[in-house]
Every structure is written in C-alpha cells, then in structure tokens.
Nucleic acid binder design. Structure first.
Lengths: 203, 203
DNA sequence: GTCTATAGTCCGATAGAC
DNA sequence: GTCTATCGGACTATAGAC
C-alpha cells in the first residue's frame, strides 16, 4: 500500500471500492455490505483491516496526503521569479489533484464534522499544503495592504471548486474534462489570476 | 412559506431544523427522528408535510431557487458597461448566496446523485442562474478564442468555493467571515478577476 | 393536523469456525 | 486472514386514534 508495495491485496480491494462508492454516493450513504459485495469480500474484512467504516476514511486521508506531500515536494520552485512560481505551483497542484480527484472530493466533503480527530488531521495537512508549501510563501516579497485571506483563497478556490463541482459543471454545460482541457487549464487559470480576465478577453 | 406568508408553522419548524442539520451533518447522516426531536414535533409530521425525508430536500431547493431568481431579477445591469456589470453581478451573487449559504451548500453537496429528478431540477435551475442570468451574457460582446468553459467557471469557482469551503477555511486560517469581510470581498474578487492579482499586489 | 406505536428493513460490528 | 451467521440497535415510513 505505501509507496506502491503489493501487500495485502484484499485490503486494497476494499480501499479502492470504498473510494469509488464514497466519491459517487457519499460516505454515509454507502454501507459496509455494499462495499464488501462490490469488492467481493466478506463484510467482516472491513473491520478486520480498517477497524471500522470510519477507519477506511482515515486511510484514504493518509494515502491522499502522503501522495500530495511527496508530489509537491518534488518541485523546486524557489529559484524562479514570482509569476513563474505561481504558474508552476498551479500546474503541479492541478496535476496532483487530478490524479487523486476522487480522494480529494471525499476528503473535502465527506468527513463527518463531529469526528474531531479526522477534522484536525485534515486541517493540519491542508494547512501544510496550502499555506506552507504553495501560496503564502510566494507573497512574502510584497508589502501591501492586500488581504491575503482573499487573494490566496481566490486562487485555491478557482482550482478546488473545479474538482469539487466537476460533475455539476458537466451536467450544466455538457462539457467533458479531458486531456485536451487539462493541457490548457493551468495556464488559463494562472493568466486570469495574474493578469485578469479583461486582458485575457482583449488579447 | 412562499413570499414570507406565515402559514403552517409546524412545517416551517421542520424545514428550518432540517436546513440546520443537513448543513452541519449532511443529508444522509441526519435522521428523521433527530429532526423531529430537535424541532419538537412528531416524526410522522415529516411524512405528512413533506411525503418523505427527500421531500424536505426538494422544498429546500424550491425555496433557494425561488429566492435566488427573485433576488437576481431585481438587478438591472443591462445599461452598464462590462466592468461595472461584472462587479455588480459579483456583488449581488455574494449577497444572495450569503443570505442562503446553508441551503446553497446543501444543494451543491447533499443531493443524492442517483435521484434523477432532484439532479435534473438542480441542473435546470443552476443553468438559469449561472449561464443565462449572470455570466455568459456578459461575454457576448467579445470575439476572441478565449475558453468560456474556463473563464466563466473560474469566476463562479472563486465565489462558490468560498461558501462551500467556509468551515474548512476557518479551521485552516482561523479567519472568521464577518460583515467587515463581506464589505470588501466582492470588490476584491472583481478586481482579481478583471485585472489580476499582480496589479492588486503591486498597487 | 398532530400524536403514539410499530412494522419492516437495513445498519455497523462481532463471535467463532476454519 | 477469511469466512458465515447473527446481535442489537437505528433507520424511514405508516397505521390508526384523536
């Protein structure tokens, strides 16, 4: 499971099936019987391998965040200038989220808000990714009265909402998001964010 | 219920309690017993007034969309120029969503994806709000090769994600979104969208 | 219109055999 | 490590009295 080892194939089957079902139907709407039936294992295997249904959620979070940290650490953006750093940060974030979009949606929308452990774990990890690694560091060179609690979330909002609202966007517009789309998407977002829609529209 | 009439106080109690619970815990995680207990009515009143638990969801959608349509129809932006129209559209959308942020989050994240009727109803109404009323009309004056399926969602993404991820944003940043915040928020979003973050940072 | 009582189903978790 | 069988409780919806 960790780092691509192939151990415990049954556990992986449960995990992958759970990701599909939690993504499509939601955590609460998915029963352990449904997971075990679709994964072709016994229901008791869920409790044996994960302790409880919530235990699956915990492992999904660990898998997602360990992937994200590893992926985003690979990038060396320190030596680039501001525009280029923002552009690269957007590109790598889009790639990383696209590879894990089901887990991302589950983690952002399906964690029960009364499970303090899971909520705190998510908060800590998201803080590391959003504040530490990607956005706030980039703004340190600037000394203005800009509200960072708007300008940062404005960027992450453009990206996050795409992955969270993908299905609804497809229902509304009919647009399907394929490889061709994701090739131009990060640069478009970067352009709008850095230079605005007006420049984009008039060019 | 419609247009502020005060009829059927028990039905309203159930509806308001449901909005609170669906927002906080999610639709599936909330039981009819819990709603009825908190609203201090009998569980059978839910089926009497709404037919089923899903019936509450349907009424929440109708309430939200009738409010949004009424509110957004009040604005007369046709005579303004592009920048001003975008700015006003953002402001009225933010005000309308803030007034109904709980219903909005429920509608965007809690509709069961296998309930075709509810999904289609949401799609039709969202299309009317997003495509027809607010964004796409604004771009008709431009003849460029700009991808509207990016530039439109980029704007709605900045706004929608704020309301969908508010709680997580507060957990991460500690920031609380008060009246003061919402006074500057729409213009900030408009500035970033129209002219970009770089201009904002350097001014 | 509102209640109590309950029917009928499904839930997550576990005991115990292999 | 994997299975079958089952416990105890919670679920939504409804019947029927008032």
């Amino acid at each position: 499971m960790k780092g691509g080892e192939i151990i415990n194939s049954l556990k992986e089957k449960i995990l992958n099936t759970s990701i599909e079902l939690f993504y499509k139907k939601g955590f609460e709407a998915t029963g352990v019987r449904e997971i075990s039936k679709k994964a072709k294992v016994s229901p008791s295997m869920i409790n044996y391998h994960f302790g409880s249904k919530k235990g699956i959620l915990k492992e999904i979070m660990e898998l997602f965040f360990s992937y994200m940290e590893e992926y985003l650490n690979k990038e060396h953006v320190e030596e680039k200038k501001f525009e280029e750093r923002i552009r690269m940060a957007i590109k790598s974030l889009v790639i990383a989220l696209r590879k894990n979009e089901k887990m991302f949606k589950i983690i952002m929308t399906q964690i029960p808000d009364d499970d303090i452990d899971l909520i705190e774990y998510r908060t800590e990890k998201m803080k590391k990714i959003i504040l530490g690694k990607i956005f706030l560091d980039e703004f340190k060179g600037f000394n203005s009265n800009v509200k960072y609690e708007i300008i940062g979330p404005a960027l992450s909002g453009m990206i996050f909402s795409h992955f969270l609202l993908k299905d609804i966007a497809t229902q509304i517009s009919g647009k399907i998001f394929d490889d061709e789309f994701y090739e131009i998407y990060p640069d478009y977002i970067a352009d709008i964010y850095l230079y605005g829609a007006l420049k984009k529209l008039k060019e």
